Computed example of a mutant assay.
Amino acid sequence: MKFLLEVTMDDAALAKDPAGELGRILRYWGGNLRHYALRPGDGSAVYDSEYREVGHWHVTDQTE
Rank of each mutant, 00 (worst) to 15 (best):
M9D: 06
E53F: 03
H35Q: 14
T63W: 14
S44L: 04
E53I: 15
G20D: 12
L33W: 01
L33S: 01
P40C: 02
R27P: 00
L33T: 00
A37W: 03
R34H: 11
E6S: 12
T60Q: 03
L26N: 04
A12N: 09
T8D: 06
G20V: 02
V46A: 11
L14Q: 09
L5S: 01
N32E: 10
K2T: 09
Y47H: 14
Q62I: 08
I25S: 00
D17F: 05
D17Y: 08
Y51E: 14
G41Y: 10
R24I: 14
G31V: 03
R27K: 04
D17L: 06
A15F: 09
Y36E: 04
G20E: 12
D61R: 08
L14K: 03
D48P: 01
D10K: 07
H56C: 06
W29T: 12
W29I: 11
T8V: 07
L5I: 14
H35Y: 13
I25T: 01
R24K: 13
G31C: 03
G43Q: 06
T60G: 14
L14M: 13
E64R: 15
D10P: 07
Y36M: 04
H35N: 15
Y47C: 08
W29E: 03
W29D: 01
M9N: 06
M9H: 07
D11K: 00
A12L: 08
A45M: 11
D11N: 01
A12M: 05
H58L: 13
L4V: 15
A13Y: 00
W57I: 01
Q62A: 12
P18R: 04
T63F: 14
R24G: 15
H35G: 14
E53G: 09
S49G: 15
